[in-house]
Design a protein around this nucleic acid. Structure first.
Length: 541
RNA sequence: GCCCCCAUCGUCUAGUGGACUAGGACAUCAGGUUUUCAUCCUGAAAACAGGGGUUCAAUUCCCCUUGGGGGUACCA
């Protein structure tokens, strides 16, 4: 018993994207199996045929791969997360492992559950009920031992007979999970505490079927920072709140609806649907995204792919979420050499907490920043490139293809100041727009260019010919040129770099001035200085 | 309503009867470094939910209260 091979499993329902809570459950199961040299199984619980979809299955497979998980048994293992998302990828394709199929709908088709139901009928503990089959609870108190919570007892009076086969012929979760776990040799059931109340049911079923009970381990749940449930509906709520906030009256709202419909993303959006969304009639995610895009607000990340799109790295997400409900003890927080390796070496049920945790985006954000800071330049450039290509903005993706050197310089400039892969795209917009599109920030112009009798503009005018004469336009040289100018004129670096920043970017924020100019190129730099001077010299009202 | 689970700084947690003047991390606040931003450095403030027990001794064990969460489906 003690040397019995550990077998764990993650059994998501492919009815939507993978939630961070689910990701953590998968992680813990994976890590536990790896740590004990056991097997990790991935099984799709798609017995709710109305809500399950192949797309969702693909998405879950992709997310698991992106996080760095693999499985010994289950649907085919996609070579990469991107490939899992492709339409050609068939989750139902030839499975990994011999205990399949690994989709419960397929198992049902293979009549896997029937003999078990028959056995229960023969034993007189299963009976027909209006087209469904119900399991008869034994009528005794049920006590189970949980590896994390200890002993849990539920009185017989609180236990009711429950459905094991639906009237459509599909097994319910309760039956399927018990039968499949037994057939697949699962030894440890690690899952969320929302399942704790199901344990007596499963235990009773196991007893009736003479199946040895696995070790149960119910892990605490994850909530939002405010204590509310972390739900995909939070995204709709946030979008709606932003919309109502931006457009308090009906007239504005009409304009917003028009804009949303107009720039509706992939799928066409009907104005009635958008209105319905605002009236809480629906929580359409497409609409939420469109509103967020029109209003330029961020939607909360809930699912794994939300975090990916927002520029988080799997490394940081894994490290952070593993700390929610589990601790290696002591002061260890940053997992070395990397999160997955650490978990497969150190994860254990002893370190799992009993109480629920709140998801702190600030801390994850910090972890992400640290991961980026610790990455090699090449790694960052590659990951940033992939992120731009998949998630935009288009101009960055285009630059990565057309001008790889410029893209690399830009990536290098932003790595030290990026906390997510999406941040450089937001901060570096000015690099990829035409000079005419640059809007000069009023406050920056006042403070940096107009102040003290336009000393900033004077600096720009003096600097222009000097920069124009620079032959080798590298960041070292441009930086040195600016510094020399500052020294020669007894000016602090800020008095010179800031006017330049405003001239080329429209604002006061950019990478180091040398890098900024180098990435931009000489022609664009000079052009922007000229335009800035002519625009900002004009008397302002 | 009923059933089940939980309870250390704002948040995630360390702590398993004395080593606790309760440690770390994120956030916060105050300084410092820096050409902006982002970093980085230093320091500060910040918790054992309340009440009963048990014990020579409780953050640590037991009970109650309160609070939070989960379940109560032919969803998983």
């Amino acid at each position: 018993m003690a040397d019995q091979t550990v077998v764990t499993r993650f059994a998501p329902s492919p009815s939507g994207a993978l939630h961070v809570g689910g990701a953590r459950t998968a992680l813990f199961n994976w890590a536990y199996a790896r740590r004990h040299g056991g097997r990790f199984i991935l099984r799709m619980e798609d017995t709710d045929r109305a809500r399950s979809s192949v797309e969702a299955a693909r998405g879950i497979l992709a997310d698991l791969r992106w996080l760095g998980l693999d499985w010994d048994e289950g649907p085919p293992l996609p070579p990469s997360w991107e490939q899992a998302l492709r339409e050609e990828f068939d989750p139902f394709g030839s499975p990994r492992g011999e205990g399949g199929p690994y989709f419960q709908s397929r198992r049902k088709d293979a009549a896997v559950y029937e003999p078990f139901v028959e056995r229960l009928r023969d034993a007189g503990v299963a009976y027909d009920d209006d087209g469904a089959v119900r399991f008869k609870m034994p009528g005794t108190d049920v006590t189970v031992e949980d590896a994390i919570l200890g002993e849990v007892t539920v009185a017989a009076a609180d236990l009711e007979d429950f459905v094991i086969v639906k009237s459509d012929g599909y097994p319910t979760y309760h039956l399927a999970v018990v039968v499949d776990d037994a057939l697949m040799g699962v030894t440890h059931v690690i899952r969320g505490q929302e399942h704790l109340n199901n344990v007596p049911k499963h235990a009773a079923l196991q007893d009736a079927l003479e199946i040895e009970r696995p070790t149960f381990a119910h892990i605490p749940l994850i909530f939002n920072a405010d204590g509310s449930k972390m739900s995909k509906r939070d995204k709709a709520k946030a979008a709606r709140a932003a919309a109502l906030d931006a457009c308090p009256d009906a007239k504005n709202r009409d304009a917003l609806v028009d804009r949303v419909v107009e720039m509706g993303p992939a799928e066409p959006v009907m104005s009635t649907a958008v209105r319905g969304f605002l009236e809480k009639d629906n929580d359409g995610i497409q609409i939420a995204r469109a509103i967020a895009s029109v209003l330029d607000v961020a939607l909360p990340e809930i699912e794994v792919d939300d975090f990916r799109a927002s520029g988080y790295l799997p490394e940081a997400l894994v490290n952070y979420t593993a700390l929610l409900g589990w601790s290696p003890g002591g002061h260890i927080e940053k997992f070395e050499p990397d999160a997955m390796s650490y978990l497969r070496e150190h994860f254990g049920l002893e370190g799992v907490n009993k109480s629920n945790a709140r998801f702190d985006r600030e801390k994850l954000f910090r972890f992400n920043a640290d991961v980026i800071a610790a990455m090699s330049t090449d790694d960052f450039v590659a990951r940033f490139r992939e992120h731009c290509r998949r998630y935009g903005p288009k101009a960055f993706g285009a630059m990565s293809n057309a001008k790889p050197d410029q893209f690399r310089a830009l990536a290098e400039a932003y790595q030290p100041r990026a906390r997510t892969l999406a941040e450089p795209s937001a901060l570096g917009q000015f690099f990829v727009v035409d000079a005419e599109e640059i809007e000069f920030d009023e406050k920056a112009v006042r403070k940096v260019l107009h102040k003290n009798d336009c000393e900033g503009l004077d600096v720009l005018e003096q600097l222009r010919p000097i920069l124009d004469g620079v032959e080798d336009w590298s960041d070292e040289v441009t930086e040195a040129t600016v510094k020399e100018f500052a020294t020669a004129n007894a000016l602090g670096m800020g008095k010179v770099a800031q006017p330049l920043r405003v001239a080329v970017s429209g604002g006061t924020v950019s990478p180091s001035i040398g890098q900024t100019l180098a990435i931009l190129g000489k022609a664009a730099t000079v052009e922007r200085i000229d335009r800035c001077v002519s625009v900002c010299r004009a008397p302002t009202g």
